[in-house]
C-alpha cells in the first residue's frame, strides 16, 4: 500500500512540475516563435503577393478574432495609404491542412494574388500548388463576390491534373478568405485607420 501511494505521488508531482516548467518556457518563447514563423513561413508569401508596396507589411499587422479563431492581417501601403491586406486561411487538402496567404485590394475588393504557405501534399503532385505559379495565378484579379471552386464544381479555377483534391483545398481556403473578408471588412477598415494614426 505504501509503495502504491509513493508511486502515485512521485509520478503526479513529477508530471505537475514538468507541466509547470513547460508552461514557463512556452510563455517565454511564444513571441519569438511567432516572429520566426512569420519570418520563415509567411514572409516569403506576403512579400510575393504584396510586391509593390512602400511599407513593410510584416510590421504593419493587426489581429482580429472571429468565432474563437485569431487571424493576423498584414497591411500593404502605397504612397502612405493602406491599399491592400493579406491574411492566411486554411483549406483541407489531400494530406491535411493547406495554408493559403490571400492578398486583397482594399479599393476594388479583388484578389491581388494567393500563395500556398504550409502544406503536406504529395511532393511533385499536390505540392505544385505551391511550386507551380500557373495554378495560383488563376486567382489573380478575381472578384470576391462569389466563392471559388474548380471547373468540375462549376467554378472558374482549372484544377491541376492529378491533384484535384489539393486544388479543391486551395479553392476552399480562398473561399474562406472571401467569407472572412466580407464579414470583417468594417473591422478591418477600422483597424487600418487606427494603424495609420
Amino acid at each position: 500500500m505504501r509503495e502504491m501511494i509513493s508511486m502515485v505521488v512521485v509520478l503526479t508531482v513529477l508530471s505537475a512540475f514538468s507541466g509547470g516548467l513547460l508552461a514557463t518556457v512556452r510563455s517565454n518563447t511564444q513571441d519569438r516563435i511567432e516572429n520566426q514563423v512569420l519570418k520563415f513561413e509567411k514572409a516569403p508569401a506576403i512579400k510575393a503577393i504584396l510586391s509593390d508596396v512602400s511599407n513593410d507589411p510584416l510590421q504593419d499587422r493587426f489581429k482580429l478574432t472571429t468565432d474563437g479563431i485569431e487571424n493576423t492581417f498584414f497591411v500593404g501601403k502605397q504612397d502612405g495609404k493602406a491599399a491592400s491586406v493579406a491574411f492566411e486561411t486554411k483549406g483541407k487538402g489531400f494530406e491535411g491542412a493547406i495554408g493559403l496567404m490571400v492578398g486583397i485590394d482594399l479599393e476594388t475588393d479583388t484578389v491581388i494574388g494567393v500563395r500556398v504557405t504550409t502544406h503536406s501534399e504529395t511532393p511533385g503532385v499536390g505540392s505544385r500548388a505551391k511550386d507551380d505559379p500557373s495554378f495560383a495565378s488563376q486567382f489573380e484579379g478575381q472578384s470576391l463576390e462569389n466563392g471559388f471552386s474548380v471547373k468540375s464544381d462549376g467554378g472558374a479555377i482549372d484544377a491541376m491534373s492529378g491533384a484535384t483534391i489539393t486544388s479543391k483545398g486551395v479553392c476552399l481556403a480562398a473561399t474562406k478568405a472571401q467569407e472572412l473578408y466580407t464579414k470583417l471588412k468594417p473591422e478591418i477598415n477600422n483597424q487600418i485607420t487606427n494603424l495609420a494614426n
Binding site: 508511486m7 512521485v10 509520478l11 513529477l14 514538468s18 513547460l22 518556457v25 518563447t29
Partner: peptide, 26 residues
C-alpha cells in the same frame, strides 16, 4: 520508486525534449 522508474524517466526526458523543441523554434 523502482516500479514506475521508466514512466518517470520518460516524463523527465519528454519535458527536456519539448524544451529543446521550443528553444529551437525560437
Amino acid at each position: 520508486p523502482a516500479k514506475v522508474r521508466i514512466a518517470c524517466y520518460i516524463v523527465i526526458i519528454a519535458t527536456f525534449v519539448t524544451i529543446v523543441e521550443l528553444l529551437m523554434q525560437a
